[in-house]
């Protein structure tokens, strides 16, 4: 495990020095996470692909200025992604809905019985509610459920304490609950 982290450190050092092969390894390690995050924030594949490319182009351009800290490298990428998504939302004005069909298709069809239209509607409603939340709350939910990160790790990425993430998460759940209560 330590060997792995030492190896990661070496790769990161090389990438900071401008080694493209090392950056390539960092790219491979992080591209799926960043894509997943952007996909849930934008709601469509083409924008997710476009913004993911821009995240890594920006990272490659500025990696020589990257300052190593105790925070994982992915936190830096997430912050770039977060800023780009915020700009994207500003440019687009109206938020797009997540095409649930796309999302559902990505999972095994065996998991979804045909008759579960009600369930699908419920999922659509929940996704709609998630997308109404402020961006930092969406980020907490995506990092918690999609990336399966702990509050501590989310805090490192978002530059907040573990306690702050815990309370942010609770407020997020309360907001979602209120949304459903109002709807019902």
């Amino acid at each position: 495990m330590e060997n792995r982290s030492e190896q990661d450190e070496t790769i990161l050092d090389q990438a900071i020095q401008g080694n493209e092969a090392a950056f390539s390894i960092l790219y491979k390690d992080n591209v799926k996470k960043i894509y997943s995050y952007i996909y849930y924030r934008t709601g469509n594949v083409s924008d997710a692909e476009d913004l993911t490319a821009r995240v890594f182009q920006r990272a490659l351009k500025h990696i020589t200025r990257y300052k190593k800290t105790s925070v994982p490298f992915s936190a830096w990428l997430y912050r770039i992604a977060h800023n780009l998504v915020a700009n994207w939302h500003r440019d687009n004005q109206r938020r797009k809905e997540v095409p649930i069909e796309d999302h559902v298709d990505l999972r095994s069809k065996q998991d979804i019985p045909d008759h579960e239209i009600e369930k699908k509607q419920e999922v659509e409603g929940l996704m709609r509610a998630v997308r109404q939340l402020p961006s930092d709350r969406q980020m907490v939910l995506i990092l918690k459920y999609v990336e399966d990160l702990s509050n501590k790790e989310i805090g490192e990425i978002m530059g907040k304490s573990e306690g702050a993430i815990k309370s942010l998460y609770h407020r997020t759940l309360m907001d979602l609950r209120d949304y459903f209560e109002v709807k019902e």
Binding site: V31, K32, S36, V45, T52, L60, V123, V130, V146
Partner: peptide, 24 residues
Amino acid sequence: KLEGLLSPVAPSSSYIDELQNRLT
């Protein structure tokens, strides 16, 4: 519900390779 809804989404492998080529 959130656990069931929010699962990782992976881009296509061709996209990953193409972007890697473009970057490096």
